[in-house]
Design a protein around this nucleic acid. Sequence first.
DNA 1: GTCCATGTTCTTTA
DNA 2: CTAAAGAACATGGA
Length: 289
Amino acid sequence: MPELPEVQAVVSALAPVLAGHTIAQVAQRRQDVASQHVITRSLKGKGLSLSPLLEGRKITAITRRAKRIVFSLDDGSAFYVHLGMTGRLTLDPQDELPHTHLTLHLSPPRGKTGAPGTGHRALHFSDPRRFGKVVHLPTGQHEDSLGPEPLDLPAATLHALLQATDRPVKPALLDQSLIVGLGNIYVDESLHAAQIHPQRKTTSLTLPEATKLNAEIQRILKTAIAHKGSTLRDYRDAEGNPGAFQHLHVVYDREGQPCKTCGTPIQRIVQSGRSTHFCPTCQPRKRPR
DNA sequence: GTCCATGTTCTTTA
DNA sequence: CTAAAGAACATGGA
């Protein structure tokens, strides 16, 4: 569930509440929910015990990078949470969700105790399918092979990135090493808005087409952020609230339903093992002249 | 029982 | 070498 807008909604909810809190206690139910960030792929692993790394550390910032929720700590280290498909971070839930693999017990900053809403907090990470993960980043170790963020990407850069590879544009935009943050929903919506057929080769896209695509990606992501993301089934923000952008989907998960732009039934095809939804009228293989 | 799912990563195939 | 396709991960809903 979590593409850039959903992850951003979680970060926006958590950051103002939890920045400055100290991790008092870590309750880790599953050892394999966490791992150490490693450049080499040989020693990845059987899990990592988080409590000795996190307990006593103060959270200095909570930010988003790609689809990762990054917790920066006062000793220069950091960790990130990736929600996978069904992961959720929930703050002070009424009832603990099933498949809660990790809970962070947090103490408020000194001097803030007593003010309303600033007591101890509990941040729960739950994830039924367990595609999500927590990754510890030792001081200095950060980025790996992530592409640029889409929201402030110059159109010429996107065009250059697309020209540098040669494959259908749909799977290219899903590739996090090319550009980050987009998933199946927002790629389909962006390609529709830019009137580009998902099977068009990246090398065939002209600069004007890439410029339009770049603008539509940014417009759709920003609109989705304003609507706190899309909830198809599982996604909830840190307060347990669903997003609202799914009501504005034009193509995604609308196979056979009329295109909201032209009325043509939306088609579904499979590319790289993923569903692609598009409008054959709005997104012709060849550009109309 | 079947198919499908907002993601990533590894393996196989071309 | 590149890239596409497939499978895998694990669980639950339709």
